[in-house]
Amino acid sequence: MTVPETFVIRGARAGDGEPLGALDRAEWSPLHAVLPPPSEPYPPFFDERHQPADYLVAERAGVLLGYVRVARPTPLESNGHVRQIQGLAVASEARGQGVGRALLRATLAKAAADGATRITLRVLGHNTPARALYAAEGFAVEGVLPGEFLVEGKPVDDVLMGRPLSQGPLG
């Protein structure tokens, strides 16, 4: 049995936009997407609201394996201590190798280093793999919006999860 090469987690760079867009399109799934499948012409991955500084990426031998986007949920000073995960994707060929967990843990560390004390996210109720990962890393369900989205014509819950950053990564 061969062990895959290790990967590194780093901040995204402007030049990562095209490969991240391709990864995002390749991994589109109704398991986690509430928008229809992407179609041409594809918008740029980075834009005014989605800057490279908001992303961490996993990279192995120059190939991007996944990303996580973390940002402030609002511009309000009263919740400036909160960060929100606003997207996490791992390439199919890299799943089961700890990439998602490493991205998540790096996000927790970065958010804490940036002065945040709490982190939140939203995940679709039927996305069992993502929910299990988040729970294993200390996220708790803090609310559920039943049937908030129609995905492939079926109602799907929007699950709100969060955790304090002071608890540190688990595992």
Rank of each mutant, 00 (worst) to 15 (best):
M1Y: 14
M1G: 15
V3H: 10
P4I: 07
P4N: 07
V8L: 15
A12F: 00
G15S: 14
G17I: 05
G17Q: 04
P19I: 03
A22F: 06
D24N: 12
W28V: 07
P30K: 02
H32S: 12
L35M: 13
L35T: 14
P36G: 06
P36T: 03
P36H: 03
P38G: 10
P38A: 12
P41A: 11
Y42T: 13
P44I: 06
P44R: 06
P44W: 00
F45Y: 08
F46H: 05
F46D: 04
D47F: 04
E48F: 06
Q51E: 13
D54C: 09
L56M: 10
V57E: 02
E59V: 10
R60C: 13
A61H: 11
G62E: 13
G62I: 11
G62D: 14
G66Y: 01
Y67G: 09
R69L: 14
R72S: 09
P73N: 10
T74G: 11
T74K: 15
S78V: 13
H81A: 10
H81L: 11
H81N: 09
V82A: 09
V82F: 05
I85P: 00
I85G: 01
L88E: 02
L88H: 01
A89E: 05
A89K: 01
G96P: 05
G96M: 07
Q97C: 04
G100W: 00
R101A: 10
A102C: 06
L108W: 02
A109P: 09
A109T: 11
K110P: 07
A112Y: 03
D114T: 11
A116M: 08
R118Y: 14
T120K: 08
L121V: 07
G125D: 05
T128L: 12
P129M: 02
P129E: 00
P129R: 00
A130T: 00
A132S: 13
Y134F: 13
A135T: 08
A136I: 08
G143L: 07
P146L: 08
F149L: 10
L150F: 11
L150V: 15
L150C: 11
V151W: 01
D157E: 07
G162W: 04
R163M: 05
Q167H: 09
L170G: 12
G171T: 12
